[in-house]
Design a protein around this nucleic acid. Structure first.
Lengths: 244, 244
DNA sequence: TCAATTTTTGAATTGGATTCATAATCACCC
DNA sequence: GGGTGATTATGAATCCAATTCAAAAATTGA
C-alpha cells in the first residue's frame, strides 16, 4: 500500500511541523502563551487539523516532551559508548541533561509541567503510553550503566537491582531541576548561585553508593575541571545529534 | 481600631473557610475538577467574594500550599527538638513529609503543580512572596539540623554552608515525590513498589555526605525498623499538630 | 434616621479550547 | 475525463469556566 504509506508519511511530517512550531512559540513566548488556534494558523492549517493529531492541548505538550526524549536517547547512547569510567558516565548523563536545557531553556519547565497530574491526566492514554515506551530505552540505558558498574565491581549492588539504584541519581537530578526552576525559591532561602552545586550533590550520592572511584568532595577545582571536560566532550556530540 | 480588627479577623476566617473547602473539594474530586464558582457556592458566598481573597485560581492554589507549609513548620519544629541524632532528624523530616502526604494524598500533586512555571507565574506576586516567607523558617530549620550536625562533628562541611548542604536531601525528596507521583512512570520502567526505596536512597546520600553514624545499606531489616520507629514516634505528634 | 462608604452579589463578559456541519480533496473505477 | 463514495480539512459556532463589574445590600458615623 504505497498510497497509505505516503499519506502516513505526510501526516507524520505535519505532526513534526506542529511540534516544531509549538516548540518555537513556547521558546519565544512561554508555555503560558501557547494557544491552539494561533499555533494552527502559524502552520497554515485550520484549528481542527491540529486536533486530528492531538486530542487536547495537554496531549500536544506531552508529545513535545516525548519527542525530546527521543533526541535525548541518541545523545545518551553516545555517552554510554564513551571511553570513560562508569561513574563518569553517570555524571555525564547529568551534564548532558544540563546542556540540553541550556540549549532549550523552556524545556525544563515544560517537562516539569507535563508530569503534573493535571496535564498528564488530560493527555490521551495513547500519548502517555507512547512517552513511557519512548522513555523506556532511556531508562534502560541508564540502568545499563549501573549494571555495568556492578559487573565491573565498581559499584556494590546493595541488594537492589540496577534500575532501583538508577532511580537515586535520577530523582536527585529531577529534584535539582525543580528547585532551580522555581523562580525565586533558592534565592529567597540562601542565594544558591553555584551551577556546580548539583554536581557536588550528585557526587555525594555516588560516593554514598560506594561507586568507585570515590572522589574528594572538598576539591572544588577537580570538580570544576571534570565538569568542564565533560561539557567540552559532550557539546560537539550534542550539536551533531541535533543537526538533522 | 477594634472595628478594623474585627473585620480583619472575619476576613481571615473567611479565607480559611475558602481554603478548607477547596482542600476538601480537591481531596474528593481532584485538582482538575476544582472550579471557582462551585467553590464559592459551596461556602455560601458569591463568586466575586472569592476574588476578593485570591486574585486568580492559581493564586488560591498557591495559598493552599502556603498554608500547608505553616502546618509543616510546627510539625518539623517538633522533630527538631526530638532526642535523636542529627542524621535521624534529617530522615525524620523525610518521614514526616510522607506522613503528611499519606494523610492528604492530593497534597503532593498540588505542591508539584503549584511550583510549575504556569501556576507560579499566574499567582499574585504578593502570594508568591508570602509562601516564600512562610517557607523560609522551614528551610532554616532544616539548615539548622545540618548546622547542628556540623557543629557536633557528625558531618563535615565539605566547604559548603549548611543551607547548600541541606539542598541535597531536599532535592532528593522532591525528585522522589515527582517520580512516584507520575502515574505509570516507575511501573513502566521496572516495578518499583518498595516504599522504603526513597529512604534507602536518602541514606546513600547521607552516607556520601559522611553524615555520622554511617549505616549499612545492605541491612534492610534495620532500615525497616528505623522507619517504623520514626513513624510511630511522629504520627501522634502529627495528629496533635492537625487537631486545631 | 439618613447619606456616604464599603462590601457583596451573581449575571454578563471574556478568552480560549474544542467540536462539527460543510466544503474540499482524494482514490478508484468506468 | 468524469462520476462517486470515502476521507480529510476547514473555521465559524459552541461550550466551558475564569474573571469582571454595575447594581444591590450592608455597614458606618453623624
Amino acid at each position: 500500500m504505497t498510497v497509505t504509506e505516503r499519506k502516513e508519511r505526510q501526516r507524520a511530517e505535519r505532526e513534526q511541523l506542529f511540534l516544531d512550531k509549538a516548540a518555537e512559540l513556547i521558546a519565544t513566548d512561554g508555555i503560558l502563551q501557547l494557544q491552539m488556534a494561533p499555533l494552527a494558523k502559524a502552520c497554515d492549517y485550520a484549528t481542527g487539523t491540529l486536533y486530528q493529531h492531538f486530542s487536547s492541548k495537554e496531549d500536544l505538550l506531552v508529545a513535545l516532551v516525548g519527542r525530546n526524549s527521543c533526541h535525548q536517547l541518541r545523545f545518551f547512547q553516545g555517552i554510554s559508548a564513551l571511553p570513560i569510567s562508569s561513574r563518569e558516565k553517570m555524571l555525564a548523563i547529568c551534564v548532558a541533561e544540563n546542556i540540553n536545557q541550556q540549549h532549550n531553556p523552556s524545556h525544563a519547565g515544560l517537562e516539569q509541567y507535563v508530569f503534573t497530574e493535571v496535564v498528564w491526566q488530560n493527555a490521551s492514554a495513547a500519548r502517555r503510553q507512547t512517552i513511557l515506551a519512548n522513555s523506556k530505552p532511556l531508562a534502560d540505558l541508564v540502568s545499563g550503566i549501573v549494571q555495568q558498574a556492578i559487573d565491573n565491581k565498581e559499584l556494590p549492588a546493595h541488594n537492589c537491582d540496577a534500575f532501583a539504584l538508577s532511580v537515586a541519581p535520577w530523582a536527585l537530578c529531577v529534584g535539582s531541576n525543580t528547585l532551580e526552576q522555581t523562580e525565586g525559591l533558592l534565592e529567597a532561602f540562601g542565594g544558591n548561585k553555584d551551577p556546580l552545586q548539583r554536581y557536588r550533590h550528585l557526587h555525594m550520592l555516588l560516593n554514598g553508593m560506594q561507586w568507585q572511584p570515590l572522589i574528594d568532595l572538598n576539591d572544588r577545582a577537580l570538580l570544576a575541571e571534570q565538569i568542564q571536560r565533560l561539557e567540552t566532550l559532550l557539546k560537539p556530540w550534542f550539536s551533531s545529534c541535533n543537526a538533522d
